[in-house]
Simulated assay, not measured.
Amino acid sequence: MATREKRLAQFDGNGDPPPNLPVEVLCEDHSGTYQLPFACRWIDGQWRNDRTGGMVEATVVGWRLPRPRSESAADRP
C-alpha cells in the first residue's frame, strides 16, 4: 500500500492547474488518500467533474496532468 507521502509525490501539480484543462486529482478523508476515477477541472475556485460538471465533494490534496493509459490485453487486436 502506498504511503500518503508517496501518493502526494505522484500528484506533483503546484498551485492551481491550468484553466480549462482536465487533470487527475488526489483526495483525502478519514480512511486515507485516493485518486478519483474521473478527470476534474478547477473552475472558479472549485473542483468539478470534467464530464458532468458536478462539484467534487471531497478534500482534494493534489493534482497532476493526466498520465497516458497503458493498453490492456483486452484492447489489443
Rank of each mutant, 00 (worst) to 15 (best):
T52H: 00
V61L: 04
D16T: 13
E57L: 14
S70A: 15
P68M: 13
V60E: 00
G53D: 01
R76L: 14
R69M: 12
L26W: 02
T3I: 02
D50S: 05
A2Y: 13
P77T: 13
T33M: 11
Q46C: 04
R7G: 02
A2T: 07
A74T: 09
C40N: 00
N20F: 11
G54V: 01
A58Y: 13
G15V: 08
R51P: 00
A2V: 04
R4G: 08
E5G: 06
V25Q: 01
N49M: 02
E24K: 02
E71G: 09
C27G: 02
A2R: 12
P17Q: 02
R51T: 03
A58N: 15
R67D: 08
L65H: 11
S72P: 00
P19R: 14
V56G: 02
P18R: 09
L65Y: 09
G13L: 06
R7C: 04
A58H: 15
C40T: 13
L8P: 03
D44P: 01
L36M: 10
H30I: 02
R7L: 15
R48N: 05
A73K: 12
L21Y: 09
A39T: 03
D75C: 11
P19N: 09
M55I: 15
D50G: 00
N14T: 13
P17H: 06
E28G: 04
G13R: 06
V61W: 07
S70W: 06
R48G: 01
R7W: 11
G54H: 10
D16Q: 11
S31K: 14
P37R: 00
A39S: 08
P68V: 12
M55F: 10
H30Y: 07
A73D: 06
G13F: 08
T52D: 03
L65V: 14
N20T: 03
R76S: 11
R64D: 06
C40R: 02
W63A: 06
L8E: 14
V60Y: 00
M1L: 12
V60L: 03
T3C: 01
D29I: 05
P68T: 12
F11P: 06
E28A: 08
G13C: 06
P66H: 07
A58K: 13
H30A: 13
R64H: 07
G45L: 04
E28R: 07
N14H: 13
S31W: 10
Q46G: 02
Q35C: 09
E57T: 06
M1T: 10
G32H: 04
M55N: 07
D12Y: 12
A2Q: 09
A39K: 06
P77A: 15
Y34S: 11
A39E: 11
D16L: 09
P17Y: 01
T3Y: 03
S72G: 11
D12W: 10
Q10E: 15
